[in-house]
């Protein structure tokens, strides 16, 4: 028994030393979906993931890193100057790059939810002709020719040569740690901060008018909806994955955490401000066949909102901006 206690003590001591590299689930968050038993986060793995995230070696010509289009200052969405991200050869993307926040709690990724495990997310960016335009196998070759990386993978995973699963698991270790849970809203939830009267009114309006889809502390029901942006669909969205025509024009209900930082909005970067988004729900929703049932309201489709209500909702949405997260030094390239 004494031995067991000693072992436990020594473990917890070690954990204390690398506290900032341990995954901590915020108490008010749901259970994680990522299976950490298959990829335990370690300091070495996290730092390797970070190095990879910022390294344009992952792209064909060394011009594009993950961080090009996922910048910490915008909660790891792309900057506003790039409504569609810029890939190798200045190719322009077709969907707005999503922020990377609270990924450990999601089951499906991308606007169409086509990827069901976080490990597989980066392959899409690496091998996309309009993003990094590189083959995963060539990235692995380049890494194996790099002494610094050989050492870093050895430290992180105790492997003598680099293979793609370790590359992908290192990237997952880095992105899994991107937990945003200390916004003013969280502080209010945890009774360690307050909301202004307008923010409080905005929250109440949000809960009655928006929270059916933007549910819970992650502000998403993890489903796919057509919100009447378009009546024809150059990008079919969810239907590309589900092969169901009833899903034409449906896209992921995005989390709204840090939403005030991630303009422009929607899969096709249609709107430049939260005001424009709310104006759309108020008066712009097109009555299309696959329209979200939540928007098929009588007598008018959409979500009627007064200007005062819109201002209140926007002030509430701004309380989801998490300054601690976007300034967290552990995500900074050279820390």
């Amino acid at each position: 028994m004494t031995c067991v206690v000693l072992v436990l003590l020594s473990c917890s001591k070690n954990r204390g030393e690398i506290q900032s590299f341990a995954f901590v689930k915020p108490e008010h968050f749901p259970n994680t979906t990522y299976d950490f038993s298959k990829n335990e986060i370690t300091e070495e793995g996290f730092l390797l993931g970070r190095k990879l995230f910022y390294d344009p070696l992952l792209s064909l010509d060394g011009s594009v890193a993950c961080a090009n289009c996922h910048q910490q200052g915008t909660a790891f969405a792309d900057g506003q100057q790039h409504p569609f991200s810029i890939g190798v050869d200045n190719e322009v993307g077709i969907r707005n790059a999503p922020m990377l926040t609270n990924l450990a709690f999601f089951k499906e990724f991308f606007w169409d939810g086509g990827v069901t495990h976080l490990d597989f997310v980066p392959i899409n960016a690496i091998e996309s002709e309009i993003e990094m335009k590189e083959s995963l196998s060539n990235v692995v070759s380049k890494l194996n020719a790099n002494a610094e990386y050989l050492l870093a993978f050895k430290k992180a995973f105790d492997v003598d040569s680099i293979s793609s699963p370790y590359l992908l698991k290192a990237l997952s270790q880095f992105t899994l740690m991107m937990v945003s849970a200390s916004s003013p809203y969280d502080k209010w939830l945890n009774h360690s901060g307050e909301l202004t009267q307008q923010e409080q009114e905005g929250l109440n309006l949000f809960q009655s008018k928006c929270a059916t889809c933007h549910t819970g502390v992650l502000f998403t029901n993890h489903e796919y909806r057509n919100i009447g942006l378009d009546s024809i669909y150059p990008d079919k969205g969810r239907a590309l994955i589900s092969e169901n025509p009833l899903d034409d024009g449906k896209f992921r209900v995005p989390s709204l955490r840090n939403v005030a930082l991630t303009a422009p909005y929607m899969h096709n970067a249609r709107f430049w401000s939260l005001k424009e988004v709310l104006d759309h729900y108020d008066t712009g929703v097109l009555e299309v066949e696959n329209l979200a049932p939540e928007l098929r309201n009588e007598p008018q489709i959409g979500i009627p909102l007064s200007e005062v209500e819109k201002e209140a909702i926007i002030s509430f949405l701004k309380t989801l901006s998490d300054v601690d997260f976007i300034q967290d030094q552990k995500f900074v390239e050279y820390n």
Binding site: D35, K38, T116, F120, S137, S163, Y166, L167, S172, I241
Partner: peptide, 25 residues
């Protein structure tokens, strides 16, 4: 197998695995 995440051997996409990136599987 799919939901085990990135895997090695015959499931390693950088080593000849037949993998669909866009609709992972």
């Amino acid at each position: 197998g799919v939901q085990s995440g990135a895997s090695g051997g015959v499931l390693d996409p950088a080593n000849g695995a037949w993998f669909w990136n866009w609709n992972a599987g």
